[in-house]
Amino acid sequence: MDDNYQWIRELLYDDISKLEEKINKINDPIALHIIACKYNWDDGFNIPKLIIENKNCDLGTASMIFYDADGYAFLNGNNEDESANLKEWFSFLSYLYGKIFNGEFVSKSIQYTPELTKVQIYKLKKVNPSIPGILLNGVVGIKVNEVGFGCN
């Protein structure tokens, strides 16, 4: 990892409450992207929600979080289960989808391309023609993995 971002590694392996405290103060979209990329989803939705609430969160990062949280199943309508975990998942993705759909992410400098086949894109468009193209085709920008971070 680039020395400029070494602090992120230390933060990710520290107490989750320290990470929660610091996310609001981060003003570097690449740092937020790296945290989102390296985040352990077993720890729940709180950290991803804090990231997408940060005014410096990039659209590419938001799109990555959307798909990392199984946004494909959300877009495809696979949300019939009524378990508590699924309600939290559905609420989180509904909120994030709304922010993406409404153009609330100002920064658009980090690349993210969802791993969707042409058939998957076709099926999603058929289920919901109003899906934002950004969620189907991705965001053009800097490839964070090209600067040594191992993120998509």
Score class of each variant (00 low, 15 high):
3 D>S: 11
4 N>R: 15
5 Y>D: 00
6 Q>W: 09
8 I>S: 08
9 R>I: 07
10 E>C: 03
11 L>G: 15
12 L>K: 10
13 Y>G: 12
14 D>N: 11
14 D>I: 00
15 D>W: 08
15 D>I: 11
15 D>P: 04
16 I>M: 03
20 E>Q: 13
21 E>N: 05
22 K>C: 04
23 I>E: 07
23 I>G: 04
24 N>A: 10
25 K>F: 13
26 I>T: 03
26 I>Q: 15
26 I>K: 15
27 N>I: 13
28 D>I: 07
29 P>W: 14
32 L>Q: 12
37 C>K: 00
37 C>Y: 09
38 K>L: 01
43 D>M: 06
44 G>D: 05
44 G>F: 02
45 F>E: 13
46 N>L: 02
47 I>R: 08
47 I>L: 10
49 K>P: 00
50 L>S: 11
51 I>D: 08
53 E>V: 06
54 N>S: 15
54 N>D: 12
55 K>Y: 03
55 K>Q: 09
55 K>C: 00
57 C>G: 12
58 D>N: 06
58 D>F: 01
59 L>V: 06
62 A>F: 00
63 S>A: 15
65 I>D: 12
66 F>D: 02
67 Y>V: 01
68 D>M: 02
69 A>S: 08
71 G>P: 04
72 Y>I: 11
73 A>F: 06
75 L>P: 08
78 N>T: 06
78 N>R: 08
79 N>T: 13
79 N>W: 15
80 E>G: 12
81 D>I: 08
81 D>C: 06
81 D>Q: 07
82 E>C: 10
83 S>W: 08
84 A>G: 14
84 A>H: 11
85 N>R: 13
85 N>Y: 12
87 K>T: 00
88 E>M: 07
88 E>F: 03
88 E>V: 10
89 W>E: 10
90 F>G: 04
92 F>I: 06
93 L>Q: 01
97 Y>I: 00
100 I>F: 06
101 F>H: 09
101 F>T: 08
102 N>R: 14
102 N>M: 14
103 G>V: 00
103 G>I: 15
104 E>V: 14
104 E>S: 15
105 F>T: 04
105 F>H: 06
106 V>C: 13
107 S>G: 14
107 S>D: 09
110 I>M: 08
115 E>L: 11
116 L>Y: 11
117 T>I: 12
117 T>S: 15
118 K>C: 04
119 V>E: 10
121 I>L: 10
121 I>K: 09
121 I>Y: 05
121 I>H: 07
122 Y>D: 10
122 Y>G: 13
123 K>C: 14
123 K>I: 15
124 L>F: 12
127 V>L: 13
128 N>F: 05
129 P>F: 05
129 P>R: 01
129 P>G: 11
131 I>T: 04
133 G>I: 01
134 I>G: 05
138 G>A: 07
140 V>P: 00
142 I>K: 03
142 I>S: 02
144 V>P: 13
145 N>F: 09
147 V>R: 07
148 G>A: 09
149 F>D: 14
150 G>V: 10
152 N>S: 06
152 N>M: 02
